[in-house]
Design a binder for these strands. Sequence first.
DNA 1: CTGGGCTTGTACCGAGAGTACAAACATGGC
DNA 2: GCCATGTTTGTACTCTCGGTACAAGCCCAG
Lengths: 195, 195
Amino acid sequence: MRTVPAHTAVKLSVAAELFADHGVEQTKIEDIAAATGIPKATLYYYFAGKEEILAFLFRDTLNRVADEVAIAVESEGSAAARLAEVIRAQLRVMAEQPAICRALVGELGRAGRIPEIAAMIHAAYYQPVQSLIEDGVTEGSLRQVPDPESGAMAVFGAVTISALSYLVTDQALDQERIASAVTTLVLDGLRLRQR
Amino acid sequence: MRTVPAHTAVKLSVAAELFADHGVEQTKIEDIAAATGIPKATLYYYFAGKEEILAFLFRDTLNRVADEVAIAVESEGSAAARLAEVIRAQLRVMAEQPAICRALVGELGRAGRIPEIAAMIHAAYYQPVQSLIEDGVTEGSLRQVPDPESGAMAVFGAVTISALSYLVTDQALDQERIASAVTTLVLDGLRLRQR
DNA sequence: CTGGGCTTGTACCGAGAGTACAAACATGGC
DNA sequence: GCCATGTTTGTACTCTCGGTACAAGCCCAG
């Protein structure tokens, strides 16, 4: 794939809205051309097709997730505190890129079938969170889990799906509210203990 | 839509595999015809198109989820115990219908765009779990959450995504293992407390 | 045995993804 | 200035596939 010029990349972000609202299948290349103002021939000059446009958008956002998560993971504090930071990081990106995140979740299957994207999700999220959990276990601040990788996935699922409810209804995602709710759930669980 | 005869419905379940493996878009009606042995013309006699075949498969499985979840919700015991039962119920259905569940998660966006299916997911899962959480709060066994609905969604996300990791790698989903891991996560959280 | 709905083959239509290509344009090295 | 290389875009085309049309055969209840 040729390097996409900046002005084109910017315009493309509105395509994410189309993908998120109507699904990839229902979004015609001509729709993208119309909405972005990039002529169809130009789109095909840079991308082999819809799928690649989607991958391009995902790549961008996943890079951001990777960066923010990496910072959160490497921040100082207990593993629990860093995990809370990771959750906050994910929510921050979801709030910044609502359309792409909606599309990403809505097309999870498709994303998983693009090897590059699947690898990025893994490297950007599951892998760091997994080792964060492992750290926490050895350091003694987190509970021993039978399988840290699916632990990481469970955390990802909890954050993503509850954030999604805000993305599809409200436009503004109240990060603080969700962050504290999900963090409490993930760290302390739903069961109430008498203090 | 005409009532689909049983022998046809049975054959259709193999279509779920196609949808889950290659995605709905990549699955041609003729592929479905070939894989199921149901001629294309017959498919169009019963369904208006791909989308309706998918909805048919989802409807079936979501009914099962609704039933199992309802039983779990109405079982006796504390809200926490019943929530654990709900998680187990969801995993049971996912293990029974791996292909459809993979397709359902992979096509979450599409499922959400079919109003009937969106309503079913809501009624079968979010709604009962939400009121289960509310019950638990009033009865004092569960922590007060700011928004029970997204609490329910978070639980759903945690269960679904971690189960997914098993569905796409192993074929057999080790229910007990995941159930206890996710239940612990949801009820008691990751943070380790000194007993 | 006959009329209705079921089942299926075959032929067809139209939308839209992707390709081909050529004309314009921009840019930078000579 | 001028050529070479790469970008940008319009237009016209092909081809796959979803969906429709339809007719012939089938099965079964009345």
